[in-house]
Design a binder for these strands. Structure first.
Lengths: 207, 207, 207, 207
DNA sequence: CATGAATGAGATTTCATTCAT
DNA sequence: GATGAATGAAATCTCATTCAT
């Protein structure tokens, strides 16, 4: 590939990224039902035609947004774990990150949209499966590392993982839908603690 | 209220129920994105005009569907608890019912739709809050009854309730999105058991 | 079918006919490439939505126009032949009618459009086949009647029919594309005469 | 004109020819309705921008395609007649060539497209007139040569020419639209024979 | 009450054409 | 000459909502 092509590809990637970002912003602001290609174009300060130049159709753009979210998760975790050795600390980072998602007003509205689209769009369905799987895989890796290092004492990595993801996710949903349902921060802390108890058999680990 | 009005109201209720049911069926079949007023009218074998006679607009109908779901939950639990005294048995029924929701292919796609709509529609948002609250209230009532009867030994009813709802809900979502993610029945059973352990302090209670 | 349905169907037929007529007018004025659904709606003084209410899509409307043309041909011939017994006179009417089509500035532009669409649209293709077949069938019927009555003396009805249709059609095309190519009326008269010669063996029959 | 300009012009001609060929291929494959400038560029393995460098606009390109077809006709006939003296043989070649056009699946779809465009585009209209005129002129030349050589005995060259073009063209159209309408080869042979009869006076039918 | 024809705003999508590189 | 990213106008089609009957 020559110099020129590299430049072009960079430009293409740039535009795609720009549009994906704009789509994410619009999506979270207006929700899938009301957002239009025109909104995205306006948000990105580009023409509507260009959106279709880079993405086959609306659904293609949305799938790309979801894939982008997935990639961001991996990047975030990779970066965060760079200088961290302790599995306990890693799990803490992981859970804190997960609980923090509820902070971002928009993130879960977008996720809801994607779940909804899962039904009618197979590509979206697969991307959703992949994102959830990513969460489970990252979580399992940490737990297994903890077991290998003799810190965690469970034999049921997958089950514990499913529980962790479930309880965090379920908590977030309730909180996102009803911010006054309970003291989210307190419950998040308690749950973290309880999970460590479950994993280590002691309750004195401080997150 | 005279005889005629009663009759009319009955008929109105009948038509409304008929349309709500049709809306639920269409909604679960096609998802929010593709369903139309015409679909509902056809499903109910009525005219499109009539839908707007009984419901202000599309959103009004959808809110009514959600409220209907809420009512059904209460009715179901009331009926199920009619001849049951044991809080343990009640909690079992409650959790089994909740886990069973994942069985119904359609139920959670509809719920996803409603969550999504929560974002842009305040009435829908409120209805969603109410449904989640209903779950928490019903669950809390059972736990408090168990405490009163000396069977459950927790002081944190609300927290435990939130955990129960969260873990079940989170489990369902993962399962609905990826039916092969894990052995749902096994995990459901394990979770139930673990919740009873949490509540009673013993692990030998068989659900 | 009750009185009401009949009324409704009449109304439906009315609207459909109205739109087909409008489509025909617009089509001949602007040609397929430039004509829009909006044009038709405007021509019929109705809304664009209504066009789609009565016709699945643009192509569906066009196929309907072609079918309408076909029907008109049959109706015209049936009516014209009502009090005519002589096959010679019938064939004369038939050929005069055919040659007259070139008079209508629009008719053949529309036909060209349909031929063009034949390629990409199977329904249109079939409708085109049907129209041409209609012409052949009507022509053959007359010739056979003439043979039965001992007036025409050919054994090759189908071949003669194909020739008649071909030469008239080919003549029209040249004339429609180039009005000054030749003396259309003169040539039309000559061709008619020659065809009768071919059929009867004498040349003194005056059309 | 200097050496450089000649080179450039050659290159320009080359590119133009390349694009015209590509346009013809795309046009016959997809038909006017679905073909795009991008299709042509892709087919020619060039960029879309270049199409507009060599042709003012889409219509300009199409007119060029039609002119190209016209030129090809003349070239073909010139070449075919190179070593042929007999007008009978020449007319045979001419008619065979004409009838053969129906063989090429694509040729007449393209011609239909051009006829259709005739309506809304004057340049296209003229190009169409020119192509039809070319056919008549070539045919007339042969007949006149035959008369000069005492082989053909008609005094109505133009009329006979119009008939020949008409009947062949009309035959092709019926065949192109309905391949099973009749035995095309048989009818083509019969028509050729009959035309020669008409021209040589061997039959007793008077034109 | 009930119907469904009619409306019209608005969404997605396509594509000829332009222009900076 | 050559490229292809970018534009933006315009087309088709959908659908909630209205309203005369």
């Amino acid at each position: 590939m020559n110099q020129k092509n590299i430049k072009n590809n960079d430009k293409i990637s740039l535009r795609r990224a720009q549009l994906i970002k704009a789509a994410y912003r619009v999506l979270s602001k207006k929700g899938y039902h009301d957002f239009t290609i025109r909104d995205i174009a306006k948000e990105a300060e580009l023409s509507t035609g260009l959106v279709h130049y880079y993405f086959k159709d609306k659904q293609d753009l949305l799938v790309s947004v979801l894939k982008d979210i997935n990639e961001n998760l991996r990047n975030f975790l990779n970066k965060s774990f760079e200088n961290v050795d302790s599995p306990v600390e890693k799990l803490n980072i992981f859970m804190r990150h997960a609980f923090e998602l509820a902070r971002d007003e928009d993130y879960f509205s977008v996720i809801f949209d994607f779940w909804t689209l899962s039904n009618s769009n197979e590509r979206m369905h697969k991307a959703n499966m992949k994102l959830l799987k990513s969460y489970r895989i990252e979580c399992s890796k940490i737990i297994e590392e903890g077991i290998a290092k003799g810190i965690f004492k469970t034999t049921e990595v997958e089950y514990i993982t499913a529980i962790i993801i479930s309880v965090i996710q379920g908590m977030i949903i309730q909180y996102v839908i009803d911010r006054k349902a309970f003291d989210y921060d307190l419950y998040a802390a308690k749950i973290s603690e309880q999970i460590f108890t479950l994993l280590t058999g002691k309750s004195d680990i401080k997150p």
